[in-house]
């Protein structure tokens, strides 16, 4: 498809869905992550196993599903799930028990080590702006084996250090997760409205742990991505260009968001 036929937000969801693994247990948070997980599941069935923190396990969207779940407590998650239960089972037994391979999250801010902020802009004690809060974002970031973050890119969102670390990535660099008492994590990824980022975790986990631009969207100049990043961004040698979405991908994505709940036209 040519660039005029899809939005950056749609391209972000398509690129994120392509970054999904072909199997494994996925716990997707509210917002774009749930839309993208639903989309990814329908693109490559049976593949991933979708679970929610509210208590749906192995949700398989019926082929004719009328919408992606709006939020993670949408009652349509009960149609097509292998099991429904509660939050202690989902965020306790499933997640803390070590059974979630990939957490899919979004946030107000992300930093160079992949830490997320869902709670407050500015100092927590005297905030510039309070936000809704973390929901289950914190424990998914703490305890999922890897994390894929999907969020629009702006300089005020991609910051050197998040204002409040609600959801640890690599915290402040190599070894920090283990020192904090957390399981190691990765490889992780961030998909923004500009491109796809990985983290330099090194083959033996001994890299710098900082975010690296690995691929850009069609026509995107890495220097533009640098301008919208709040720290000196590393760009991978031979940074790739992402294949444009197909007409089929865009049609499916739009069918899953019939009321533009997630992908407001003109927003990005």
């Amino acid at each position: 498809m040519s660039e005029q036929e899809y939005t950056l937000a749609e391209l972000m969801c398509v690129a994120a869905a392509r970054a999904f693994p072909v199997s494994g247990v996925v716990m997707a948070g509210m917002g774009l992550p749930m839309l993208t997980a639903t989309f990814a599941k329908l693109l490559q069935p049976p593949g991933i196993v979708i679970c929610t923190e509210v208590g749906a396990f192995d949700w398989r969207p019926p082929p004719d599903v009328s919408r992606a779940p709006v939020g993670i407590h949408d009652i349509n998650l009960n149609d097509g799930s292998a099991m429904v239960s509660d939050m202690v089972d989902a965020l306790g037994t499933l997640l803390m028990g070590g059974n979630v391979d990939l957490g899919v999250l979004s946030a107000a801010q992300v930093d160079r080590f992949g830490n997320l902020n869902t709670l407050v802009l500015g100092d927590y004690r005297h905030p510039e702006r309070r936000l809704g809060g973390t929901g289950g974002n914190t424990e998914i970031a703490c305890l999922a084996k890897r994390v894929l973050t999907i969020m629009p890119q702006e300089r005020r969102r991609f910051v050197e250090r998040v204002d409040f670390n609600t959801s640890p990535g690599y915290i402040d660099g190599p070894g920090a997760r283990l020192r904090a008492g957390l399981p190691p994590q990765g490889p992780n990824a961030v998909v923004s409205t500009f491109g796809v980022f990985g983290f330099d975790t090194g083959d033996g986990g001994d890299g710098s742990c900082e975010m690296v631009l690995e691929a850009v969207f069609p026509g995107m100049d890495p220097d533009i991505v640098r301008l919208e990043t709040g720290w000196p961004l590393r760009v991978a040698d031979g940074v790739a260009e992402i294949e444009p979405p197909t007409a089929e991908e865009i049609a499916l994505l739009r069918r899953l968001d019939p009321h533009h709940f997630y992908l407001t036209p003109g927003r990005y």
């Binding site: 965020l91 803390m96 927590y124 914190t138 424990e139 305890l143 609600t166 915290i171 904090a180 957390l182």
Partner: peptide, 19 residues
């Protein structure tokens, strides 16, 4: 006990004791 919250800013004492 939980393993969540480890490594987060929630555990910083000045934030725990916020006004």
């Amino acid at each position: 006990p939980t393993r969540s919250f480890l490594g987060t800013d929630y555990l910083r004492p000045e934030f725990r004791d916020h006004a």
